[in-house]
Design a protein around this nucleic acid. Sequence first.
DNA 1: TTAGTTTATTTGTATGTACCTTTAAATTTA
DNA 2: TAAATTTAAAGGTACATACAAATAAACTAA
Lengths: 358, 358
Amino acid sequence: MARAKYKQIVDFYKKYITENKLSDGELLPSESKVANKFDFSRDTVRRALDQLEKDDVVYRQRGRGTFYKDSKNKVKEKKIAVITTYLSNYIFPNIISGIEEVVSSKYYTMTLANTDNDPNKERKHLRKVIDNGVDGLIIEPTKSAIDTHNMDLYRELKEKNIPFVMLNAYYRELNPSYAIVNDYKGGYKATQYLLQLGHKNIAGIFKEDDLQGVFRLKGFKKALNDYGIDSESADVGTYITSQISSYPYHWMDKMLSHQDQPTAVVCYNDEIAVDVVKAIIDKGLKVPEDISVVSFDDSILATATNVRLTSVRHPKEDLGRHAARLLFNMIEIGVEKPRFLYDPELVVRDSCKELRRR
Amino acid sequence: MARAKYKQIVDFYKKYITENKLSDGELLPSESKVANKFDFSRDTVRRALDQLEKDDVVYRQRGRGTFYKDSKNKVKEKKIAVITTYLSNYIFPNIISGIEEVVSSKYYTMTLANTDNDPNKERKHLRKVIDNGVDGLIIEPTKSAIDTHNMDLYRELKEKNIPFVMLNAYYRELNPSYAIVNDYKGGYKATQYLLQLGHKNIAGIFKEDDLQGVFRLKGFKKALNDYGIDSESADVGTYITSQISSYPYHWMDKMLSHQDQPTAVVCYNDEIAVDVVKAIIDKGLKVPEDISVVSFDDSILATATNVRLTSVRHPKEDLGRHAARLLFNMIEIGVEKPRFLYDPELVVRDSCKELRRR
DNA sequence: TTAGTTTATTTGTATGTACCTTTAAATTTA
DNA sequence: TAAATTTAAAGGTACATACAAATAAACTAA
């Protein structure tokens, strides 16, 4: 069967509704009339009306007829989900605020969840999102550099055509839509700045279980190499999420015991920088007089501390806004792979000192 | 017709499902078998299955059969809405994080919106929440002390039996469920602390368009009176939301030009305290040596600043958690008016000095 | 053993016919 | 004129029949 007859009738009724600009409650041609018109059996017409009734386009009343049921009474608010690693601290409130700003300007609501950078929690929330049905998803992946064991669920998102935008980091193999900061360039610029101030012995501390850290480290090494310093000889500390509370302080403390103490440190982000600065001060040294520090994200911590930190800007609210807009482009216009890549600059403050050229 | 035949078949299938304790996806007797069994036409059986399919009890696959669709797969996730004045700054991320923690431990999702303390935005979001249907709402009212022009919508919430919990402040006339801090006591304790340190000339700056500010001011005055100081003679500055960016600094600046300069200031919250401290420092004075400062909320600002602030504790995450739990008690157990009133204590840090008794 | 083919079973589409129930309008009656 | 009755039209239920399309199991050939 090329095309079911009853579907022709469905189309006929739909066309009738649009062409005659019917409004809510208006009468449609009766079953028998349409059956005669097409020379189909009345049962075929009924089958079509069954379909339309199921689809909530018409309602029927015995003895009266079949009536158009206007869809404007059933506009469903659309829902998007936002899953980030954290909610309440650091730059995340700003990112979320940016998303909310865009979301609530449309007829959408957003649901929030956080993973604490735990892939199991991420899995739970992804499952929930898929099973429950959302119109779109903004997600910051957990441990994006090492752990991809929720890849199956990400693929399920794609199979079920649930539009999603990856935030802050993305899995290359998924070839997804994303809104991220160019961390490689950020790492390069931060390090380049120190090099231009005359620093040669530059240490770095980076998180290695998310892609932001991996790329920042790559940029760090590239800058060193470009300025004639073997990046392999540089002191680099790496840590993972679970070590976050103790590692940075102790690593810096150890660095300061070296005979060949670094003159500058590149820190994964402002949170780490705060610990690093504390370790420096506790050793009786000063920032930037003895040690220069640069970090990332330009968060509230960068200015709240005693030494205002020189930090690579993170767009925060703006990244959130962009992520939301990308998602809307996918949902409403059907844009395939919209992307936003932010090229960060360095915000220079008081935590770095120029070395006299030797 | 006494009873439609197809309804007998509907009942037969329903009975079959319960008696054989079918679980999701199990096969049901085929159309023709049932038709033969009852000696009805197959079309009548189909009519019954159409009904069951419409009711989401079965699904059919051509060539395979008709299968039971277990309803436990259709449990709808419940939805609660959270409306706060702000999202991304100050103590709000913590409050929201506390709510989220409780919400996501259950099979709930939460939607977020913020009002910027603007009653019009509040109205928009309330309208959305009511029209769209949520299972519950946590809301921090805007300008709770002066503006109640969304009272009609709050009443609509009650009429439609949508459970809601008011956060941080509440409208007494609604007699609602709430999770708040006892700001009166907080105001009293903060002021009492200064009085006990020997301060007699104490100024205060309070926000007057929300109830937190009104109650904190009341507690402030009560403490003064209890210690034999006429609260009417005290220097009190009040401001509203729109003046927040300029008023506190200038007010403090003016205070310091008085011939009878205060020795201590009670500030509405840490944000204000930061501006007040800045005004003091800009005059060449020091905290706490010249002027003592206490504030409210014990936020990140209280410790991030140069002078660590003595501040009245706000439970933040815990308040969020409590608000969410109260709401669940209303939704799931039907508790009538669950309430949480936090009795705050003062966190003593470095911003106050003891005066020698004269 | 494996790959393709056939067959039986199941649901999906379609037609024709018959009669029932509800509704609203037309007609009749008091 | 107002109330009661009749009638036409609409959708609702039911049966018989036929063939189409999808699926899974049984069968067959390489």
